[in-house]
Design a protein around this nucleic acid. Structure first.
Lengths: 342, 342
DNA sequence: TGCTATCTTGACAGCGCTGTCAGTGTTTTA
DNA sequence: TAAAACACTGACAGCGCTGTCAAGATAGCA
């Protein structure tokens, strides 16, 4: 199965290879008649451009690299978000004849910088989508920016000029969730904070605080438990919070894993959910709708965010016209684990 | 940040570009002294070969394409297997300076063939790993074989000469699981079969049957329910099987999703698991160890299989020396959902 | 009618690398 | 000691494409 080249097509159509190239790339100024002749030749030879040659000549690869923290180094339970990002990025790719390269790398590794520079220099993707929490490593982002290809940060910690950031409104939506819990009658709402190395997570605590202000309720220090994002720390949080003299009637955790920990421990303590305790999480991991009762949580539109990121890479015009920080709003997912207190 | 080329390195080291190329590619017959001189120049310029140029000249891309059924077209719950394959393939890639391209495509789509041919012709991956169930579409595999790049099938339906297949011993391990259930005292073991379009899944039914033969037990037709691999069909299976006059004491489902469906429905029917009913699944999805009780199941070493597949693509010698069908054995994961019946 | 602006096309030089082959020097073999 | 074998190195073509530029054709305008 020998592949046709531009030259084959050109010969068949009786034009120069450059003209064929024009047709293939939809460049302007090709007469309708030659256009048609060339198109026919392309079809009949089943011509497909060779990406490497095109890349070499044009300095574009039609490849996007998606970089995220390697889930294989830890538990895979909450890794559904990776598939969601992949899905969104791929959706955009398919529409534009791009392909997606995935490149998990270990967040804790010292040579991420080196690894990604190699990726850029060798493969030459047209852009990189950097997911949290790696998007928060400003050293990495900075050296990537020096390569002068578009860098799109997903849920980054901080803005870095030159890069584009796509984030959710963590703070606002956390406030909204807290207000929701208050609105259905909870007077005492506790919060399980996450590992604050991940900025987005710490914004969630700020959202909780903001809601309390809005409600003109005092911030009760021991109604906030600081966990580490794990299920285990959720369980610890539950033991702690539910052991208070006046325990809360609702617990809002900064991620679903911790919320599930809370749920598990609450049950062990003999509480029925949501009758005795309402629980809300954040992330909408796959498990959230599989546990029983299903978990009220916040859904980050990760697929949409990644799709947008890919579009930004593929479309230079779009990049010029859009702000460096774009917010794709998250949504409350009200499920069974929250309800009006008894 | 201007990238160094072979020529820059050659100039600095005072040799020809070909010699630098030799050093970069570890070709033989370079004197130790020049080798060292060149290596120094490479380091000091931080030279990284340009993949596109290399690919164009050498007809290799250092890219592997992983093709699987697009999970976004259906429920994502059982999609952890995708991450596992990715992980295995990536593990092999990282050791060999390869990169991984992911290409989910819709199993039901009519133009998979066209889509994959385009992928091959444009991107020119050095090989394709085709996961089940697409690996079972012999039309697709055949046209891919015509492209003359290595095609590695993961858990394929049938062998197709020219391609390499990496499979698990579905039939044997299913038999083993059935025998295990019998060995702990279950006299009546039902089976929930899956969608038989996926050959591997239908082998599981055969394994169940084989075990019955080994046990010299009759095959009871209405002890087999035919589901469609979904949680919902597992629930249906449970309603059906547990409604029999003499219901089974153990149910073995051809995949975990259905097993979880069975579990859910059994609980609704008031049964305690594993006291009243033992349940076993197949696949060891992430959820299997998160449900309660944790699910006894069969673990396919998907990561290892994908890793092996990637190695086969990268190493021609390995390909020549190994058989076209390789079996990586699966393992029973005995957990809480099975135990001796009351 | 002559002259400029615009459209349409092709020649050609590279993008950065590898493969081939030929040219040196250096060793081994008979 | 001559011949053959081998080790090391570089010149050069070319992978298939795009970008640049210039030429020819056509249209627009005074």
């Amino acid at each position: 199965m020998q592949r046709a080249t531009l030259e084959d097509v050109a010969t068949l159509a009786g034009v120069s290879i450059k003209t064929v190239s024009r047709v293939v790339n939809r460049e302007p100024n090709v007469s309708p008649s030659t256009m048609e002749r060339v198109s026919k030749a392309i079809k009949s030879l089943n011509y497909q451009p060779n990406l490497s040659a095109r890349n070499l000549a044009s300095q574009r690869s039609h490849l996007i690299a998606l970089v995220y923290d390697d889930p294989s180094t830890y538990q895979m339970a909450s890794a559904g978000y990776i598939l969601e990002m992949q899905e969104g990025a791929l959706r955009a790719c398919k529409n534009n004849h791009y392909d997606l390269l995935i490149h998990p790398c270990n967040y804790r590794s010292d040579n991420i910088k080196q690894e990604l520079i190699s990726l850029v220099q060798q493969v030459r993707p047209d852009g990189i989508i950097l997911a949290a929490p790696i998007s928060g490593k400003s050293g990495v982002v900075k050296s990537l920016l020096a390569t002068e290809i578009p860098i799109i940060l997903l849920s980054p910690g901080k803005k870095l000029s030159g890069s584009y950031s796509i984030a959710t409104n963590d703070l606002e939506i956390s406030s909204t969730m807290t207000l929701y819990l208050a609105s259905i009658g909870h007077e005492s709402i506790a919060f399980v904070a996450g590992n604050s190395s991940h900025r987005a997570v710490s914004n969630r605590l700020l959202g909780y605080k903001k809601a309390l202000e809005t409600l003109k309720r005092p911030f009760v220090k021991n109604h906030v438990f600081h966990g580490d994002n794990s299920v285990g720390s959720g369980e610890e949080a539950a033991r702690n919070l539910l052991g208070l003299k006046s325990p809360p009637t609702a617990i809002f955790a900064a991620n679903d894993d911790m919320a599930i920990g809370v749920m598990r421990q609450a049950r062990i303590l003999g509480l029925t959910i949501p009758d005795d305790l309402s629980i809300a999480g954040f992330d909408d991991i796959t498990l959230a709708r599989l546990v029983s009762p299903t978990l009220t949580t916040v859904r980050q539109p990760l697929a949409a965010m990644a799709e947008r990121a890919a579009q930004l890479i593929m479309d230079e015009k779009l990049r010029r016209e859009c702000p460096e920080l774009q917010i794709v709003p998250a949504e409350l997912q009200i499920r069974e684990s929250t309800r009006r207190p008894n």
